[in-house]
Design a protein around this nucleic acid. Structure first.
Lengths: 181, 181
DNA sequence: GGATATTACCTATCGATGATAGGAAGTCAA
DNA sequence: TTGACTTCCTATCATCGATAGGTAATATCC
């Protein structure tokens, strides 16, 4: 199963996540298309395995990052790592974070690592002074907006994502400014 | 052709943009599937017409908005109108602003109204004091981030988009703060 | 050790999809 | 009246995900 998922990632790199056909995938691993159904009940089940696999990759990546003591610097490191992960493999990002596969909903089980990742992000944002749900929502939407714009308009470049640190400071400072008034 | 596009939007509302099948579309307009090819060279050509149509709808909507004199208030009105337009018809937003249809690239001709819209936004942002390309990029990515988060996580709600005015102020104030240092 | 499941693969085929071939009417201008 | 063009059709194609049903090899149980 792991080798099938790996082959599926390989094919995704060529034709996008949605462009993986079961026949091509079977050819890639040296079997016939119906034999894939021994391992996955459906194509969506394959996507679900890829989703879980991608999220595990993400967690592994983020756990390898040495976070600075300073909470604000920690947020920046964490988000930079996330952005790097997103940008380096577009099909993987598309499967994990865009709702692009028609009808695909990750199972609760596969979604769990994604939840762990999100909770870690929220935790760091709290430590850096973003306490309210609203502020956290905005910050995360900002990062997602940068990555989306980067991937769709300038893949391989850094026209949007290079502003993360500046914008992060702006968002993290905002509660203080709000208080001051 | 217009009635076919209208029927396609109707079907999009039920099964999403990607879920429109040519046979169902033909049935909707009272002809057989191959007859559609008299009007569109391919399914992507149909999407292209829908793309152009959606952008024309967007332009019409934004031109109907009375913009306040104050440049900052104008930016907010403009963006609020854009957000309202995006949120009220998800399939339309998906076709116009997400790269969700595999292999679909709007033609230069259909893209033109989209360009007009974007230029109008940039113009307003300039008038409100956002002069650099970088600042404009960030602002637009922020708005897109809000809409995306809203649509994918809380369709029909306002958990993200309600923060537009506050965030707009924050982004529009940032150049001043930067200067002050 | 032999009967019995289970696993891992196969060929053949299904229904739905977008797309094409080729033809039959109707309209319209020269 | 003829020839071009438009609009529609039926029939069919290749590809897609999915299912049916069969065949060996392997593992498990009495």
């Amino acid at each position: 199963m792991a080798s099938i998922v790996a082959a599926a990632w390989r094919l995704s790199g060529e034709h996008g996540v949605g462009g993986v056909s079961l026949r091509a995938l079977a050819r890639e691993v040296g079997i016939r298309q119906p034999s894939l159904y021994e391992y996955f009940d459906s194509k969506h089940a394959l996507y679900d395995s890829m989703f879980a696999d991608g999220n595990r990759q993400l967690l592994a990546r983020l756990e390898a990052v040495k976070l600075p003591r300073d909470p604000r610097a920690a947020v920046k490191s964490f988000m930079q790592a996330f952005i790097g992960f997103s940008v380096e493999d577009v099909p993987r990002y598309v499967l994990l974070f865009q709702r692009q596969i028609p009808g695909f909903e990750p199972s609760a089980e596969s979604y769990q690592p994604a939840q762990v990742f999100l909770n870690r992000a929220i935790e760091l944002l709290h430590a850096a002074g973003l306490e309210s749900q609203a502020d956290v929502d905005c910050f995360i939407a900002m990062v997602a907006g940068l990555v989306d714009a980067q991937i769709s308009n300038d893949p391989g470049g850094h026209r949007w994502i290079r502003h993360l640190n500046r914008l992060a400071d702006m968002y993290l400072d905002e509660p203080k400014r709000r208080k001051r008034r």
